[in-house]
């Protein structure tokens, strides 16, 4: 476990030391706050717009954090950083798990910052406290980082460096639409990622409260899918020659 945490620590240090991350958070806050000005343009739907904006931007921020790992692993492999780390008593599986864990934790932290910022802005704009549905929708967006990180690590291992970020982004994009295959039991949620299970964006506006059991299940599913993706990636990675 120490080894996994050591690798994860390296990853979140990398992300949290990027100035671009803080600039991203600032831009997200500004965009969310700008929704206040859309009352005329949206015929007084600016409140719903702000909620939707916050969820979309939170999702995009999480996706960007996840995509950053698709740059990190291939670069480490190419430059030889990975060979230094893997020469230590560190299994290749642990290396991949550490990368996924580091990305997940960083994604959760950044998402939490965005959520807190949104709630402050919302309270300031409308004088209302946030509803449980809004909070839970945001929590689900944050939790979606778990399976997304596993997907990113998986693609980093099997696909050439040049196209990994693009393929990962496309895979995440389409993973929100796999509910069309919900009837195919093993495929949906087993092999194919089902990120739509985390999509309660409309519920934030119209709903009251999601069962907390559901949120617990979403964590479990995220872990199950991550186990699948990382195990498969590890099987392939173990046979790979490290530069």
């Amino acid at each position: 476990m120490n080894e996994i945490l050591a690798i994860a620590g390296g990853t979140w240090r990398r992300i949290l030391r990027m100035r671009a991350v803080y600039f991203l958070i600032l831009c997200v806050m500004v965009l969310i706050a700008s929704a206040i000005n859309y009352d005329v343009l949206s015929l007084d739907h600016h409140k719903d717009l702000m909620i939707d904006f916050s969820l979309v931007l939170n999702t995009l921020a999480v996706v960007l954090i996840v995509i950053s790992v698709t740059f990190e692993i291939p670069v480490e492999l190419r430059e030889g950083v990975a060979s230094t780390l893997l020469s230590k008593p560190l299994g290749r599986t642990h290396y991949l798990v550490g990368k996924a864990l580091g990305t997940s934790i960083t994604g959760l932290i950044i998402s939490a910052i965005i959520i807190a910022g949104f709630f402050i802005i919302f309270n300031f704009a409308f004088g209302e406290r946030i509803s449980m549905a809004m909070l839970q929708s945001h929590v689900l967006v944050a939790l979606s980082v778990i399976p997304m990180s596993a997907m990113a690590v998986f693609f980093s291992v099997i696909i050439p460096e040049m196209i990994t970020p693009i393929v990962t982004a496309i895979a995440i994009w389409f993973a929100f639409s796999t509910s069309a295959l919900a009837n195919v039991k093993i495929l949906y949620g087993g092999i194919l990622p089902a990120l739509d299970l985390y999509n309660f964006k409309s519920f934030a506006v119209y709903g009251e409260k999601i069962n907390w059991d559901y949120i617990g299940l979403s964590i479990l599913w995220g872990l199950a899918f991550s186990t699948f993706a990382l195990s498969l990636a590890s099987l392939i990675f173990r046979q790979k020659d490290i530069k």
């Binding site: 990398r14 030889g80 230094t84």
Partner: peptide, 10 residues
């Protein structure tokens, strides 16, 4: 390793 490379941000 030959031409050691380490995480530049660390």
């Amino acid at each position: 390793p030959d031409a050691p490379a380490f995480s530049q941000y660390l």
